[in-house]
Structures are given as C-alpha cells and as structure tokens.
C-alpha cells in the first residue's frame, strides 16, 4: 500500500515536471525574444567552444578537424580560382555595365555588412548557415544574404547579439517567386535541400540548362542557373533544378544586405518581372542601320545610327 502510494506520488511529480516544461516551451513560443536572450547567455560557452573547434588554427582543433575535408576544400577552392581567373574580364565588363545602368535608373548601392561564415549546413544540425555578425553589428532578421555582388543565397532567420543564422534559398520548405530568363516565365521556386532548389514549369515552356534564375523580390537578386531539367511527356509539369554558382560548403565570407532590399508587395515583384522580360529583349550590341535616300541626289547615302545604351527598350 505504502509502495503504491509512493509510486503514485512519484508519477504525479514526473507528470507535473513534464507539464511545467511544456508550459515553459509554450511561453518561449509566445515570447521568443526572452528565451533566445537567455539561451544566448547560457549557451555562450558552448558557442565559443564550437567556434574554437571549427575555426581556430591551434593544434587541438586542427587535430580534431577532418583532414580529408580540408584537402577537399583546398581542391575546390583551387578549381574556383581557376574558373574565376578566366571569367574576370567578362565579369568586369558586365559589372561596369550594370553599375552604369543602375546609376541611370537612380538606384544607389545599398549598404552591406561583411560577415564570416562560422558554420555551414554540414556542420549544423539544421540546414542553416551561421555567420559571425548579429544584432550588435546591425544584422536584421529577414535581411538578404549575398555572395559577391548580387548572388543572393538566403535570408537571415534568427539574429542573436554576436551571430546570426541564415536560411538558404535551397533549404527545404523555402519558397519564393523566381524569374527564369530564356523562357521568360515567373514561377514559384522551392528549396529541396542539399544545396538544390527546384522550379515547376508547365509542359510546353522551353526550359533549358543554363537559363539564369532571378529572385525579383530581392534587389539585386540573381540566384543561379538551371543545371538539370527533368521532363517527362506524360507528366503535366516539368522540373528545373537549380544550384548556386558557388558551393555553400566552400563559403567563407558573405555580405548581409538591408531589410529594405526585400520587396514584399506583389505589384513591385510584378514590375520587376516585367523589367527583366523587357531587358531580355534589348541587346546593346546591335546596331540599327537606317537607309535614307534624297530626291535631289542620284546616289544613296547610308547612315549608321547607333542606339545609345541609355535608351529605354521598347
């Protein structure tokens, strides 16, 4: 009898503990800022240890880090350098042209925050990127994160005082509107994980490997290129798989934009899509030849009139 009473009171105590924990979780869900602030303080030693193990070049962390991974990273970076060296001239010309067009449109360069990548998706239990800049440095939740000048890779989803987490465009469940050049269609894009995103396009639309994918809701918002098309004639839809130009696991530095670079209104997104479509019709390298004949002269004179790059496309 006494033993049963003891067991019952123990069980009641255990259930009470579970209930209290559940209430704390619910409160945390309602007041996330308080819980995250407390966790920042409590988990700081773990955060510091983690950072030390992942980034430090002292003997112990280097010993613990996987040597093979480091060798692979070096190889990957060497390949990237080789590719980038070849693209330098083309990119330089395009960047210069882009800057000129932007200044003509009156858009100023938005302020960016440079951040180092502390942890990548393969080093975290979630499909996130951890950067070493947080609220103290002006990182806002929802701000776009770029690689280089205009390649958007994700959005800041959580920002603590000294670090932030970035949800990648390729993270499962991440949805956004994308514009595909070439076929000139606006579709919804979803992340499917492992550094790959997917677009769903109806059959009949010409979707090709190499088509650029832009995110009209982010300024500037180039995402990547279609690297594989899955099309079966018996299916009503075809899928295009997109991977960013750079491997996420080889990222060391990113830049964080401002919240104002994200467009939330559908009208603005539609405007942007229209602008992309119009821009694709315009080729600055084409000369227009206008032939004029005068009645008084027997000879025909031909003038070459070059379209100015400042002229708006029709």
């Amino acid at each position: 009898m006494k033993a049963r009473l003891q067991r019952n009171s123990k069980r009641r105590r255990q259930l009470r503990l579970a209930l209290v924990a559940f209430i704390i979780v619910c409160l945390g869900f309602l007041l996330p800022k308080i819980v995250t602030s407390i966790s920042f303080v409590v988990t700081y030693p773990f955060h510091a240890t983690n950072q030390w193990l992942q980034e430090s070049s002292s003997l112990v962390p280097v010993f613990f880090r996987d040597r093979v991974t480091l060798e692979e990273e070096i190889k990957d970076l060497k390949n990237q350098v080789a590719v980038l060296e070849n693209n330098d001239l083309t990119q330089g010309r395009l960047i210069h042209e882009n800057k000129q067009l932007r200044s003509l449109l009156g858009t100023d360069e938005a302020e960016r925050i440079a951040a180092a990548v502390i942890a990548r998706p393969n080093e975290l239990p979630y499909d996130l990127l951890q950067i070493d800049r947080g609220l103290d440095h002006g990182v806002e939740v929802g701000a776009p994160v770029f690689v280089g000048q205009d390649i958007v890779i994700g959005l800041v989803v959580h920002s603590a005082r000294e670090y932030s987490f970035v949800s990648l465009v390729t993270s499962p469940g991440f949805e956004s509107t994308a514009f595909i050049t070439g076929s000139n269609v606006a579709v919804s894009m979803e992340g499917i994980g492992s550094g790959v995103a997917r677009v769903k396009v109806p059959q009949g639309i010409n979707l090709a490997v190499g088509d650029s994918v832009l995110l009209p809701s982010v300024e500037p918002g180039i995402f990547g290129q279609i690297s594989f098309v899955e099309s079966s004639p018996t299916q009503p839809e075809q899928f295009g798989y997109i991977s960013p130009q750079l491997s996420i696991n080889s990222l060391y530095f990113v830049s964080v934009g401002k919240l104002s670079q994200i467009t939330r209104s559908s009208t603005e997104i539609n405007e942007k899509i229209k602008q992309y479509a119009e821009d694709s019709l315009y080729n600055s390298e084409v000369d227009v030849i206008v032939s004029t004949t005068t009645a008084t002269s027997t000879a025909t004179s031909t003038e070459v009139m070059e379209i100015d790059s400042e002229q708006e496309p029709e």
Partner: peptide, 29 residues
C-alpha cells in the same frame, strides 16, 4: 533542449527539440 532551440532561434518557428525532449521524457517515465 530548450537552450539549444533558443540558440538556433527555433522559438520563432517551431521548437522541435524542446517538444521532442518532453515527449521523450514522458516516454522514458
């Protein structure tokens, strides 16, 4: 689990680990 969820900012979306730990606790009891 609550602290880890707080660290990763999961209370802004869904605290998977905290809820799982409570369920795990009940199960182990």
């Amino acid at each position: 689990a609550i602290m880890i969820d707080g660290y990763f900012g999961n209370f802004y979306t869904f605290p998977y680990l905290s809820l799982f730990s409570i369920l795990w606790y009940i199960l182990t009891v």
